[in-house]
């Protein structure tokens, strides 16, 4: 190299210029990882704003819900909302007992879980422990696609396919709108969540644990159910809680198939109304924004928000707190 670039006056000039440049560049930077140009700083700032946007979305949701909810509780006492089981928001004599909606929500979500837990866990155990990799490579994307089917489609299933079957089984005096058909499709909807998340948790169980169990003379089922499943328990529970939260927040299918009957204590073969369905019902009508019906919509939404948020937090806590740490 030296031979090709003999030192000369020109070279010296270049060198000093470069030195100038580098001295400037080599100033210690505040960020610690390279100097940022003004444009770079601008980009940094813009990206920061986009990242904080999600926080503002949360704040926005909370503010919007709180604002109208407070308005609502100015007109309706707290006890009438949380202490009553009668709901008749659209009648002349208005009652706002949220328990009537919680009953419908809870029943549909529980029916959904009753369908989804056995199916989802079986699918998860099968995919993680039994399935040959090829079959798994086919089934897993199908589950993902299933999770992406719009909820109106499930509503169609519930109302026009499952409900007639239920009426064939339980007799024609069962209404076309009933909690059972809505619950079953909600269950089908959350199967992919349970199956997929539980399978992830089970596959995260180290291979060495399985080998240890096999080496003691366990059958595949004993390894699956007595070693892998308990070891992945926190992930499985978290997936079930998340699925429950999804079932509680599910809207269209339960609106279409659940019927509009907000009553506390009705059975699974009768029409019910969930919190989400109530919100849809009130939104579909032309509700004046100053009316009590409009405000109760937000009070119900607030209840729903707190419930689902709480469940999501519990799920996160469970999966962190009870996770087994393997080396």
């Amino acid at each position: 190299m030296a031979a090709r670039t003999p030192d000369g006056p020109q070279q010296d000039t270049v060198r000093s210029l470069l030195a100038e440049l580098w001295r400037d560049r080599l100033q210690p930077s505040r960020s610690g990882s390279g100097r940022e140009t003004p444009a770079g700083r601008l980009i940094h700032g813009a990206l920061f704003v986009t990242a904080t946007l999600s926080a503002f979305v949360t704040i926005g949701i909370v503010l919007v819900l709180i604002f109208e909810t407070v308005e609502f509780f100015r007109e309706v006492p707290f006890i009438d909302f949380f202490g009553s089981t009668k709901w008749s928001a659209l009648f002349a004599e208005k009652q706002f007992g949220v328990w009537a909606l919680v009953w419908g929500t809870g029943m549909i979500a529980l029916i959904g879980l009753a369908v989804a837990i056995p199916l989802g866990l079986m699918a998860a155990v099968f995919l993680s422990e039994y399935s040959p990799p090829r079959l798994r490579a086919i089934v897993k994307p199908i589950l993902e696609i299933l999770a992406g089917v719009p909820t109106v489609v499930f509503g169609y299933f519930a109302l026009l396919s499952i409900s007639p079957v239920i009426r064939d089984i339980f007799g024609q005096d069962v209404g076309i709108y009933n909690a059972l058909s809505a619950g079953i499709v909600v269950g089908l909807m959350i199967v992919p969540i349970i199956a997929s998340l539980s399978e992830d948790a089970m596959r995260a169980v180290p291979r060495s644990l399985r080998e240890g169990a096999y080496a003691l003379g366990s059958t595949r089922m004993e390894v699956s159910l007595r070693v892998v499943l308990p070891a992945a328990f926190s992930g499985v529970v978290a997936s079930i809680i998340l699925a429950f939260s999804r079932a509680v927040g599910e809207t269209m299918a339960v609106t279409i198939a659940g019927g509009g009957n907000p009553q506390f204590g009705v059975g699974p073969l009768e029409a019910v109304q969930t919190m989400t369905a109530m919100i849809v019902q009130l939104s579909l009508g032309d509700t004046p924004t100053t009316s009590i019906e409009f405000k109760v919509l937000f009070a119900v939404a607030m209840t729903l928000f707190v419930l689902t948020l709480g469940m999501n937090f519990i799920a996160q806590w469970v999966s962190h707190r009870f996770r087994e740490e393997y080396e």
Binding site: T58, I61, S245, V248, G249, F305
Partner: peptide, 13 residues
């Protein structure tokens, strides 16, 4: 957590 918020609540927002 936002991913777990029911979609109808986004509608109200």
């Amino acid at each position: 957590n936002l991913a777990g918020v029911p979609s109808i609540i986004y509608g109200l927002l």
